[in-house]
Amino acid sequence: MKVTIDDVVLPGDFCEDIIKAGEKSRVILGPGLRKELEKIFITKAGVLRKRAPNTYWVDSYQKRYVPARGENVIGVVIQKAGDSFRVDVGGSCSATLSYLSFEGATKKNRPEVQVGDVIYAKMLVASKDMEPELVCVDSNGKKGRLGVLNDGFVFKCSINLVRKILNPSCPLLNSLKNEWPFELAAGMNGRIWIKANSMRETIAVGNAILGCEYLTSEEIKSMCTNIASILAGHVS
């Protein structure tokens, strides 16, 4: 069926608007879109979205992570294999993380990473036919925000929820950030790591994140004030 922007789309639908845009200038086809012959086909069920100038993608509900290059993910080290670590990121197979791809690591000076550690890393290689590769440094050799996540609490959620809370228009983080100190790492693989000073606060952050999946912006704001008042009432 022919569809247009902001329609609910199903796999097999095609969009002629994108073809027209592609005749004039470059077009970025995001997840859920595929060019086949002279048509753009939808490959996921969801809502067809557009962002100016020429970016199209399908906003779909998904819990299975498919590794993609450049994404920041949260993984668990499951094995030390010679000169690399095997890291479970929730994809179809585990990812490799070289011990040299940490800040300041050399062959003699190995990073202190143990099996079972939670790490925040960037996807360097993610292709259909090879296992993904992670790094914990940027192109300048600095660790930036990447590396081992100590303490805290990890939970899984849908990939949509991660995108929702990281969207600048989502009021969740803005309404929580002035309430109590907390730290958060959101992986694009649908895992979120949180850390706060007390268990009560950690649970509050986790519940706030999980609760906002199907709420509107207004509802999120009221939920956050609600949680904050409950927390303030009990902590005397």
């Binding site: 592609g22 005749e23 200038s25 470059r26 077009v27 970025i28 086809l29 995001g30 997840p31 879109l33 595929r34 060019k35 753009i40 979205r49 962002r51 970016t55 199209y56 993608w57 498919v66 993609a68 290059r69 450049g70 994404e71 920041n72 925040y120 993610a126 925000r145 990447l146 990939i159 991660v162 995108r163 990281l166 969207n167 600048p168 983080l173 929580l176 950030k177 002035n178 109590w180 100190p181 907390f182 730290e183 958060l184 790492a185 959101a186 992986g187 694009m188 850390k195 706060a196 000073n197």
Partner: peptide
């Protein structure tokens, strides 16, 4: 003219996923 991109991070304008508030980190 068509560039395929398998990640949402290049489509949507998302925040950096590592955040800290009120002096936690």
């Amino acid at each position: 003219n068509f560039i395929s991109e398998s990640s949402f991070i290049f489509c949507e304008d998302l925040l950096e996923g590592r955040l800290s508030y009120k002096g936690m980190n």
